Deep mutational scan, measured.
Amino acid sequence: SGVNQQQLQQLMDMGFTREHAMEALLNTSTMEQATEYLLTHP
Rank of each mutant, 00 (worst) to 15 (best):
L8V: 07
L26F: 07
M12E: 05
T35D: 03
Q5A: 13
N4F: 12
Q7V: 07
T30R: 02
Q10F: 13
T28L: 02
A21V: 15
L8S: 01
F16N: 04
L26E: 10
E23S: 06
A21G: 04
M12A: 04
H41T: 09
R18P: 05
N27F: 08
P42M: 15
Q6D: 13
D13V: 05
Q33S: 05
L8K: 01
Q5I: 13
T28R: 02
A21R: 00
Q9H: 11
M12L: 07
A34V: 02
A34T: 02
S1V: 13
S29E: 14
Q7E: 11
Q9M: 10
L38R: 00
E32A: 09
Q5D: 10
T17K: 14
T35P: 09
P42Y: 15
Y37S: 09
M14G: 04
E23T: 09
L11Y: 01
T40V: 06
L39S: 14
Q5T: 10
E23I: 10
H20K: 11
Q7G: 06
N4P: 08
L11I: 05
N4I: 09
M31D: 02
L26G: 05
Q6K: 12
L26R: 10
T30N: 10
Q7H: 15
Q5F: 12
Y37P: 09
V3Q: 07
F16A: 07
E23V: 08
L8T: 03
T17A: 15
T40I: 07
H20E: 08
G2A: 14
M22V: 12
Y37N: 11
E23K: 07
T17C: 15
T40Y: 09
N27V: 09
L11W: 01
L26Q: 10
M14L: 10
V3L: 09
L25H: 01
Q6T: 11
Q6G: 10
Q10K: 10
N4A: 08
L25W: 04
Q5L: 14
M22P: 00
H41W: 13
F16Y: 12
Q10Y: 12
Q9D: 08
L25I: 07
S1F: 09
S29H: 11
D13M: 09
L39P: 12
T30D: 07
T30K: 02
A24M: 01
F16E: 03
M22E: 11
S1A: 14
L26S: 08
Q9C: 14
R18T: 06
N27A: 10
T40D: 13
T35R: 14
H41L: 14
L25K: 00
L26H: 08
L26A: 09
T17R: 11
S1N: 12
V3M: 07
Q9P: 01
E23M: 09
V3E: 05
Q6S: 12
D13Q: 09
M14A: 05
E36L: 08
E19S: 11
M12G: 01
Y37G: 08
E32R: 05
M31N: 02
M31S: 02
Q9V: 08
G2W: 10
T28N: 05
E23A: 07
T40Q: 10
L11R: 00
G15N: 04
Y37R: 13
D13I: 06
L8P: 00
V3N: 06
R18I: 07
L11D: 00
Q33W: 03
Q6H: 11
T40H: 12
R18F: 09
E36S: 04
N27R: 11
L11C: 02
Y37T: 08
M14Q: 05
G15V: 00
E19I: 09
G2K: 13
L25P: 00
S29L: 09
T28M: 03
T28V: 03
M12K: 03
E36M: 06
Q7S: 08
L11V: 03
Y37F: 05
A24Q: 00
Q33E: 15
L25V: 04
M31W: 12
Q9E: 11
S29P: 05
Q33V: 02
Q6A: 11
E19Q: 10
A21Q: 00
H20N: 09
Y37E: 14
E19M: 11
M14D: 04
Q5H: 12
E32P: 03
Q9R: 13
Q10I: 14
A34R: 00
L25A: 02
V3S: 06
M31K: 03
Q7R: 06
A24S: 03
R18Q: 09
M12H: 03
T40L: 08
M31Y: 13
G15M: 03
L8R: 01
T30H: 03
L26I: 11
P42W: 15
G2L: 13
E19V: 11
N27W: 06
T40K: 09
S29A: 11
E32H: 04
V3G: 06
M22R: 08
R18S: 06
V3F: 09
R18H: 08
G15T: 01
T40E: 10
T28F: 07
L8N: 00
R18G: 04
G15L: 02
E36Y: 05
A21W: 01
H41S: 07
E32D: 07
V3I: 13
M12V: 13
M22T: 14
Q10D: 07
A24N: 00
T28G: 03
V3W: 09
A21E: 00
E19L: 10
L38H: 02
L26Y: 06
A21L: 02
S29Y: 07
A34K: 01
M22Q: 08
E32F: 04
S1M: 13
A34W: 02
M12Y: 03
A24H: 01
N4G: 06
N27L: 09
Q6C: 11
S1T: 12
N4H: 08
L25Q: 02
Q33N: 04
Q5W: 12
A24Y: 01
F16G: 03
M22Y: 10
A34M: 01
N27D: 03
E19F: 11
G15W: 01
L39R: 11
L26M: 12
T40N: 14
H20T: 07
T28S: 07
Q7A: 08
A34H: 01
